[in-house]
Design a protein around this nucleic acid. Structure first.
Length: 372
DNA sequence: ACGTCCTTTCCTGATT
DNA sequence: GAATCAGGAAAGGACG
């Protein structure tokens, strides 16, 4: 029976992956996406570190905030070399800074110090930060799953929707959830003992994402807030009042007003742009650590992939977009829009199978691996 | 203010 | 019959 222990293992794996790259071949994927000019702002693995460095340079296994002066220098040197930049134009006395300081420089400030390379350094630095935030988000999900799966056993209201939600809406969500078992509530790993994908996916039903998005500040309802809902009707109604009279995104749902208010209370403004659906899917596929049983490559060279747990992926996407009502049906509609833009190609006759199109990028092995 | 992009939501009908 | 696919339509949020 899967449960918190399994989730702890997943967490441990992530932490190991984050901080012990030399012990895991998959680790570099997590922090080495920089230097990839074609990745549309989304993490791509293995693109920043020289291929010959199996363990990676000193800066490569740590977050920029924690870099020493030497690591900062090494990172800068790497990018000078990578970009074939004329280092003679840089005043290296200005590079005498630790990672914390580096992270606090604006794009303009880096531009003043490094000239044209400043933009590149700024972008690469913030890509690292964003991918670590992405991992924080996943880890946050896992942590909350650990809590919520425990709560589910104790609490008859696993979704923590607050008292203003109707029983009807609760039932609706239970029915919609691939993780709900009538007798047990939301059970981590119920669908696939021994695999972590369900743990990840199951997390998606906890309505308290520790989410990062490119929006950053639009992290609307965190765990604390959700708990305050649970304990304070007043707070919930305040939230609902704020949204009162404002329609939800997309075509209006055919829900009762109560349900609508309930859902709106959980959501705030839509996540900013930054990670598109196809990039989200791609990143799950190219990060085996994140992809445990959610999606799989059918033909890696051709970019053909299959949803193994369509609803779980949809829930995960919904979590990312702070939309607890996301379903595979809706997600697949968005996927189908990509056909027209040739980000995806149709794969006829095969259910749950899609193929990356010519306007997608960042999934090919040669892109994912060594671009240096 | 407006247009565009990118979904999100709902829907009907077809296919598996 | 359920799940999935296909695609039209309408709508909203973010952004330029």
């Amino acid at each position: 029976m899967a449960g918190p222990y399994e989730i702890s293992n997943i967490l441990s794996n992530y932490i190991n992956a984050m901080y012990q790259p030399e012990e895991s071949s998959s680790v570099p994927d997590l922090l080495t996406h920089l230097g990839d000019e074609d990745n549309l702002g989304v993490a791509l693995p293995n693109t920043q570190v020289p291929a010959e460095t199996t363990g990676g340079p000193a800066w490569y296994s740590e977050l920029p905030n924690c870099w020493s002066k030497a690591q900062v220098l090494e990172w800068i040197s790497y990018h000078i070399e990578k970009n074939k930049y004329d280092a003679s134009t840089i005043d290296f006395s200005c590079c005498n800074m630790d990672g914390y300081t580096l992270c606090h420089y604006s794009r303009d400030q880096l531009g003043l110090i490094f000239g044209p390379l400043g933009d590149e350094l700024y972008d690469r630095l913030h890509e690292i930060t964003s991918v670590s935030d992405e991992l924080d988000w996943i880890i946050g999900l896992l942590e909350k799953e650990e809590v919520s799966s425990q709560d589910a056993l104790l609490d008859p209201s696993p979704l923590e929707l607050g008292s203003s939600c109707t029983q009807e809406s609760l039932e609706e969500m239970k029915l919609a959830s691939p993780f709900f078992q009538a007798d047990l509530g939301y059970v981590s790993g119920a669908m696939s003992p021994g695999s972590s994908d369900v743990s990840i996916a199951g997390t998606a039903m906890s309505l308290s994402p520790h989410s990062q998005d490119s929006g950053g500040s639009d992290l609307d309802l965190d765990l604390t807030e959700m708990k305050s809902f649970r304990f304070s009707d007043g707070e919930l109604h305040k939230k609902a009042d704020l949204k009162h009279g404002k329609r939800k995104r997309g075509r209006p749902r055919k829900l009762s007003k109560e349900n609508r208010d309930c859902l709106e209370a959980k959501k705030s403004k839509h996540a900013a742009r930054g990670t598109h659906l196809w990039e989200f899917i791609r990143d799950i596929l190219i990060h085996p650590e994140l992809n445990e049983g959610l999606l799989k490559w059918e033909d890696r060279r051709e970019g053909v992939f299959k949803f193994l747990r369509s609803e779980a992926v949809a829930q995960l996407w919904g979590q990312k977009k702070k939309n607890s009502s996301m379903t595979y049906e809706k997600l697949s509609r968005a996927m189908r829009y990509y056909y027209k833009r040739e980000i995806l190609e149709r794969v006829d006759g095969r259910r749950l199978v899609y193929k990356f199109g010519k306007n997608s990028s960042g999934w090919k092995e040669e892109e994912v691996q060594d671009r240096s």
